[in-house]
Amino acid sequence: MTDARTKGAGPKAGLEGGTEPEAGAALKYSFFPGCSLHSTAREYHETAVKSMAALGVELEELEDWNCCGATALSSADTLLSYALPARNLAMVAEVGRPLAVACNSCFVTLNRANAVMASDTPWRKKVQEALAAIGRRLTRPVEIRHTLHILRHEVGLDRLREKVTRRLEGLKVAPYYGCQIARPRHQWGDPELPVEMDEVLAATGAEVVRYDRKTKCCGGALMTTKEDIVLSINEELLREAKARGADIIAVCCPMCQMNLDAYQGKINSRFGTDYSIPIVYYTQLVGFALGLDEAEMGFSRGFVPATKYLRKYA
C-alpha cells in the first residue's frame, strides 16, 4: 500500500485558485459535476456531495458550467476540445478555489486543458483568444482534484475510519478504476495498479478483493459502435470480479458504471454467463458507511440492484 503521493496533494505553487486548506478546517472546493452526473449518474452526484459534506468537505457546484467535451471531441475539433474545458477552468480561477471533479472523463479532459495552459504550445494562445472572445481569461493552470483523491488524501483514511458508523464487514468489493483516471500520471500512486480506492473502501470496513483488471478499459462510448468488442471486454472484467469472489464492483466513472451495469444482461445472453454483480459508485458505499440514509444512496437505481448486499448493514 503506497502513501507516497500525499506530498502532491496540496495545492501547487503557480496554480490559480490554490488556497492551502488549513489542517482540520473545513475544505471547500468548486465542483464540476459534468453532464453524466446530471443524468445517468445522478446517484454518483448526490452521494459524492452528501458523503463529502459528512466528512467536512463542501463541494460548491460551479455556476454556469458547460460540458467538458468528453473524449470524443478531441478527434473532431482540437481547439474546441481545449476551449470548452478551459471555459470551466477560467470560471474556477475566478472563484479562486481548487476544483473537484468526480467523473473520470471530465477529470481527464479538464486536466488536458490544464496541461495546455501550462505549456508553451501555440494552442495555449489560441485557447486564450477563444476565451477572450467570450470575455473570459485564463493565464495559468488551476488546481484539479478527483473526489477520490480528496477522500484518500485530503480527508484521509483516519478521519474516514473515525466517521464510519456502519462498517461494511464481509462485503466483498472489487475496486474498478477504469482506464482514464490513473493515466498518464495524474495524482495516483501507480498508473497501472492504483490503490487509492482500495484504501478508501477498506476504511469503510469492506473486504477489497484483488482485482488485476482495475485499470483496464471498459470500452467507453465504443459500446454504441463496436458492441461485440466492448461486450467481450466487459465480460472479462466481470469474469475476474466473479472469480475473485466479489459481491459488487465499485467504480468511479459513469461510463464504466453504465457499460458494466446496463449491458450485464446482454453479456449474459451473449456469453451464456450468469453474472449478477451490482456496479456501484464508491461514494455510494462511503456515504452508506458514514450512516447516511440508505434510501438516499441510490442502491436500487442500477439495473443490477445492490440492495440485497447492503440491506443487512442498514
Binding site: 488485476d212 483488471r213 469474469r239 475476474e240 472469480a243
Partner: peptide, 9 residues
C-alpha cells in the same frame, strides 16, 4: 510485450 494478465479462473 505490453502486458501480462492472469486468467483468474
Amino acid at each position: 510485450g505490453a502486458e501480462i494478465m492472469e486468467d483468474p479462473v
